[in-house]
């Protein structure tokens, strides 16, 4: 089962390697990992998308909590949450394909943010499935380059993660 785990961690050198090291040492998998400081610069927030049985996920959260620099951990996927990922995708867009490509981006609420003679760069946000769907919908030969941030997540409504 796919889980999305949010972590508040002290913004200290080495904290990221501790967390990444924990995952590799214990054989947990990381699908995506994002990290950036929060409004409180002394803390970073990390979102890790992982997968595993309930037992494995329980161990992951316990092991994360055990790390000295980890302030708080929640499994966002335990309840209602919102998830977003940003993708920048460079596609072939010569005279012939331009219109189609623009239409496709519009359907997925993407924006063309850079244009050259024969390429478009499209910015697209959404949950992971939406980004996957967009890639699927394109003619595979048209894709030149993609870059994705990995998912960030936040709880819905009153569900918050803060100290």
């Amino acid at each position: 089962m796919r889980h999305i785990i949010s972590i508040l961690v002290e913004n200290e050198a080495g904290a990221l390697s501790r967390i990444a090291g924990l995952f590799s040492a214990r054989g947990y998998n990381i699908e995506t990992l994002t990290v950036a400081p929060t409004e409180d610069a002394s803390m970073s927030r990390m979102t890790i998308v992982t997968s595993g049985s309930e037992d494995v996920i329980e161990q992951i959260t316990k092991q994360l909590n055990k790390l000295i620099e980890v302030v708080k951990v929640i499994d966002l996927s335990e309840a209602e949450h919102i998830e977003r990922e940003l993708m920048l995708i460079k596609v072939r867009a010569g005279q012939k394909e331009r219109e189609d490509m623009k239409r496709m981006a519009d359907i997925f609420r993407g924006r063309v943010i850079d244009v050259s003679d024969n390429t478009y760069t499209i910015e697209l946000t959404g949950d992971t499935r939406k980004l996957d769907a967009f890639i699927q919908a394109l003619d595979q030969g048209a894709i030149i380059e993609t870059v994705r941030t990995g998912a960030s997540g936040i709880g819905r409504g009153n569900r918050v993660l803060r100290v």
Partner: peptide, 14 residues
């Protein structure tokens, strides 16, 4: 040192 000992300590500091 911090990297080498990271998986075998409760915590480490530089």
């Amino acid at each position: 040192t911090v990297g080498i000992t990271r998986p075998i300590v409760k915590h480490n500091f530089l």
